[in-house]
Every structure is written in C-alpha cells, then in structure tokens.
Design a protein around this nucleic acid. Structure first.
Lengths: 232, 232
DNA sequence: CGGACTTTTGAAGTAATTCAAGGGGAGTGG
DNA sequence: CCACTCCCCTTGAATTACTTCAAAAGTCCG
C-alpha cells in the first residue's frame, strides 16, 4: 500500500504531474527509495552527480559552502520538489549539499534512467525545464534582493518567502513549519545571526512576529510586507 | 550565403550543438531573424515571454530592475548563448530585460514552435536542460560570493569571469571585449561605482589592470586571483 | 542538574556608502 | 578646428549600517 500512496504523491510532484498513471507505475519501478533521518546527508557538494531525487515526504535543505567554511542556505525542499537536477547534465558534480532537516523519504533515479525517461516522455523533460526555470527565477530574485536591499528588508523577504512555502496557520499567526534558527535565517539573508536576532527582537516588540528557540511565527504579514518593500 | 553561415553557427550554439544538419535546416526555417542595433531592447522585464532567442552575433546584456529603479546586471550574452528561456514555461513573463550592447543578430522561435521542436527532438530538450542547469550553477556561485565575500573580492571575481567569457588577448593583457563602465561592474558585483573606481585605481597602481573609459584590461590574472581568493 | 546549544544585547570597530566637488575624454556643432 | 557639452571617472571627507567582539542569559535534553 505504501507503493500505492507513493504513486499518488509522485503524480503530484513538480516533475511528474500530469503524467498518466500507467507511466507513473513504470517511472516508479525504474527508481529506488531512499529514507533519511533528520540530519543525514543526501549528497554533498563536489560529489559526482549520479542520481536525481524527488521528495515524497519530509524536508531537506540545500547549502553551499566556501573554501573557508562559510555556509549559505540555497533553499529548503518540500515534498513534491526535486533534488539533484545537476544529474541531468553529464559529467558534473553537485554544486550544493542536500541535508534532511526532518525524517525524509525520497525516490531516486540514476542519471541514465532519468535521461531515458525524459527522452521517451517529452512531457517529463518539459516539466523539468519548467522546474529549472522556476528555480532560476527564484534565485535571480534573491540576487536582486541581496544586491539592492538593506539587511532588514532582506530578512523580511526571507521570512515572508518561508511563510509562504512552509507556513502553517495557527492561532498565533503563520508558523514556519520546521525548526529555523537565527543562524539559518542569517545564512539565507546574507547576514549574521546577531543582526537577525536584533531585528527579530525589534519586530517582536512591534507584534509583527513571535519567535522562540528555532521557531518563527509571523503574526502581521502585512506589516512585514510594508517593512520589506519600503523604499530606501 | 548568410543562410549558410547562420546554419554553421546554429550548429555550434549551446542549444543546438550536436544536431544533424538536416534538422538544423528545419529548425532554422521554423525561426525568424532579428537584428538589433546597439542599445536596442530585445524584450523587457514583465513582457509576456513569447519567444526564445539564440545569439548569432553581437553581445547583449540581461538586467533586472527594482521598483525604485535600482538595476543589476544578471549576465552578458555572447554568440551561441540563449536568451528568453522563460518562454519554455507557459504563461509567464520575462524576469529580466535583455538589451543589445553591440549591434546584434539573433534567431528567434515562438513559444509554440520551440516547444514543438523540443517535443520532437529530445536532444534539444536535453541541451536546454543543460543550459539552464549551467545558468543556475553560475548564479548560485554569485549568490555565494555576494553573501560571503568582501567588495574587493567580488569585483575581482567579476572581472575574472568577464575576462574568461569575453577576453581578448592583447599586448597589454586580456582585454574585456566590450565597453564596460565602472557602473556596469558595480551592478554586477553588488556595490557602487565609487567603490569600483577606487579599487580599480588601486589595482592599476599595482599593475594588475589597466583601464580606461569603459574599458578594462587584465594584466596580471594571477595577482587578481590571489586577491579574489584570499581568505578573510 | 549539568552541559551544550541557541539567543540576546551592549560596545567597539570598520568596510563601504553617501555626499560633494572637480577633472578629463569623446563626440558635436558652430 | 576649436569650443561646448555630456558622460564617465576620480578622489577626499563625512556618515552609517552592519559586523565583530564579548559576555551573559535562556532553553532543551539526557
């Protein structure tokens, strides 16, 4: 039965949505399952890119590290999303490390397999193009933010994005549905944990957010949007 | 004869390399030519993405602008490269503006046409995936640089990248083969023209570069690499 | 209850921006 | 051909937003 529900989910992923179920069966049969406990690594920056994965359940984080050990968070991956698209290009290595931040369940395909699937089913290839284009667009926006905005606005946009992607409505407001430290936010917004802490404290005084240890709840999204879109 | 040489070039673009020439003829016939004088705009941020282009000759620049008019340069496009890949996703708008910085010659395909080509020829779709993956990787590196490096290193990496992409060997060193103002460099490195000017002056004193009005010649690449990779 | 993380907050320091003013090249038009 | 104008570039000085340094206070877990 696990198989059956996997199929349902597979049909709703960004990569395979819209595919007839016969094909999904075939696709699933060609892949392999992978389970990761929170904290385990799916693949590492510099590993040769040999498999492409789709997240079935859980949550993962893609990071990039400099030679001297500084890290940035590229993005968080939710169920339905794709990890390791570098695999689609021959002979390259993963540019980022992907780590589970929650117990996670994925399905993977070897480079050859996924390429064969795409060659036979152009709809999958077209989906992949759309996925990559969306990611590209996303990161382009972050580049723009990082280049033109002040820290407070950047942190604001980061929180708003996370609330959108991984928000859970609660009595207090929209809660970001996974543990998120000040350091994590800093690595996404391109700043330090100190600055994040200070700014979050200020917002807390204004009643805009409500945060705890590795937790952020967004109480007044509109107020935060106002701050984030404010022109210098 | 122009047709013939276009074909040659088309077969060496990132999108169509490796395709048999019969197919190239077909692909070219399905597209349309577009000429732009220096300064003319190919498409603008926010325009609906209706065509995809390949640069045959010339040079273009992709930029993104904020609501309050601040601009960043996403990248420069050389012959063989692809513009407007957003067109591959249905119902979206161009995230950036593309402008010719030199008289340029392109071939374009409507959204429907290029999708049809990709559906029929999976090799083109796979090329497109490789192109997008490469762009993504590229921009990811810039995000890392922007987040972790100091201005001098960022400018250094920017100049090194440009020298690589568009360098022309001359007696003085490697000359960046298109007009590049301090403002342009600033918009690529995420800083101000003042800072770029100061740092370029310093490098000039050290004999690392030699620059003029809208011109940069890299004389000592290794020295610049040393500066750029220096750890804080 | 000890110990390891995570967070907070002040104070000092600094890299880079902003402000301000002037200089120089390239092209235009008289 | 010279003068004028428009850009582009340079360089000091003042300002500031943010980081770095430092220390202490919470908070969770075994």
């Amino acid at each position: 039965m696990a198989n059956h529900s996997d199929l349902d989910i597979l049909g709703r992923t960004e990569l395979f949505h819209g595919m007839p179920s016969a094909m999904l069966v075939e696709i699933q049969a060609a892949g392999f399952r992978k389970k990761l406990a929170s904290g385990e690594i799916l693949f590492q920056q510099g590993d040769s890119a040999s498999s492409l994965f789709v997240v079935i359940a859980g949550r993962l984080r893609a990071t990039q590290t400099t030679l001297d050990g500084q890290q940035i968070i590229i993005r968080y991956l939710a169920p339905g999303e794709t990890a390791g698209h570098t695999t689609l290009t021959r002979g390259v290595v993963h540019p980022s490390t992907v780590t589970a931040v929650d117990d996670s369940h994925l399905i993977g395909w070897s480079s050859d397999t996924i390429r064969k699937i795409m060659e036979q089913h152009s709809a999958v290839a077209m989906n992949a193009l759309a996925v990559l284009a969306a990611r590209y667009h996303e990161i382009q926006i972050r580049l723009l933010e990082l280049s033109t905005e002040k820290v407070e606005q950047r942190i604001g946009h980061t929180v708003l994005r996370l609330a959108n992607q991984a928000g859970r409505r609660t009595a207090r407001g929209v809660e970001i549905a996974f543990p998120l430290s000040r350091q994590d936010l800093a690595e996404m917004a391109g700043t330090t944990l100190h600055t994040v802490s200070r700014i979050l404290s200020r917002w807390e005084d204004l009643g805009i957010v409500d945060c705890g240890r590795r937790q952020v709840v967004l109480c007044k999204p509109h107020a935060l949007m106002a701050i984030s879109d404010e022109q210098a």
